[in-house]
């Protein structure tokens, strides 16, 4: 299975938010805790809708949550 090139800062953002629990974030965006863990570990790329929900919870832009390398870095 090819790994995704998308990385994310969810873990750092959770800790910046007073160590927000995975279960609380999962409930806020409407996914199971297992799915949130998979997203955090880069094992699952969420839908655009879920990605926006995560960004809204942290009140940051989408690119502050998810990053994709520039063409020359690929």
């Amino acid at each position: 299975m090819k790994p995704t090139k998308v990385t994310n800062s969810i873990r750092a953002l959770r800790f910046a938010r007073g160590e927000m629990k995975q279960a609380d974030l999962a409930a806020a965006i409407g996914v199971t805790r297992q799915t949130l863990i998979a997203i955090e570990q880069g094992k699952y790329s969420p839908s655009l809708e879920v990605a926006f929900k995560i960004a809204r919870v942290f009140e940051v832009s989408l690119e502050e949550v998810f990053q994709y390398p520039e063409e020359e870095e690929l």
């Binding site: 409930a27 409407g30 996914v31 199971t32 805790r33 799915t35 998979a38 879920v50």
Partner: peptide, 10 residues
């Protein structure tokens, strides 16, 4: 008691 049981990934 685990709350949501299935989501888009499931």
């Amino acid at each position: 008691n685990d709350g949501l049981q299935a989501d888009e990934r499931d």
